[in-house]
Write a protein that binds this DNA or RNA. Sequence first.
DNA 1: TTGACATATCGATATATTACGATATGATTT
DNA 2: AAATCATATCGTAATATATCGATATGTCAA
Lengths: 106, 106
Amino acid sequence: MKVTKKNIGKPQGDVASFVPAAECLKTLAHPARLRMVQLLLSGKYSVGELAEDCQVPDNVASEHLRLMQRCGFLTSEREGRMVFYQIAEPHLKSLMNCIEGRFLNS
Amino acid sequence: MKVTKKNIGKPQGDVASFVPAAECLKTLAHPARLRMVQLLLSGKYSVGELAEDCQVPDNVASEHLRLMQRCGFLTSEREGRMVFYQIAEPHLKSLMNCIEGRFLNS
DNA sequence: TTGACATATCGATATATTACGATATGATTT
DNA sequence: AAATCATATCGTAATATATCGATATGTCAA
């Protein structure tokens, strides 16, 4: 590749390559959804339990969980009349570590 | 602290403690802004250079940069008629490493 | 000082996101 | 089967965000 003034030292990729990352980060960028991910990284929770912890109605919790499922963060499993969600994206753990390290260290 | 059925094994914090994190993540969750952070982690760039790389007009780039400055990610410094932005938040580096590791490894 | 360049700001519009209430589905108990 | 519980979906209204064009500010060069 020819090296010009324009690309010396530039990191790989371009703005387009960040489109999927931006979508997933947007999905994560909500207090209730962050808290849900944190909880699910530590154990098993039903929709109702997550809703109660996050202080949102059940249907709102359900929508948050559906969004995270859509982008591959979570999977769900029904047990009786409850539904349990779990982490499906392994990178979420290190990502949450970064976030907790920055924002929960007060 | 008393241990009850409700809090066994729950990670510290609650949904409210994630409000600032969610705001900052929302700021980061845009393709152009992610690319700008990636570039600024690797070197020095003016507004115009960032705008060109991200393929947005100068004023749009300027607004993106202002948003990131507002939440403490960046600082700016004028040199002549150009303005250079730089990373102000050290955690951005590890956060970008997580993001690149997940989304730019195809 | 005039003109050109780089960046920033403002107002308006278009689009996206969020939350809510109502209703629907699925499962269990009586 | 009917009632109840847990979750999901849908329409809608409120709010937030993104983008654009126009204009403003600040800097330099002629």
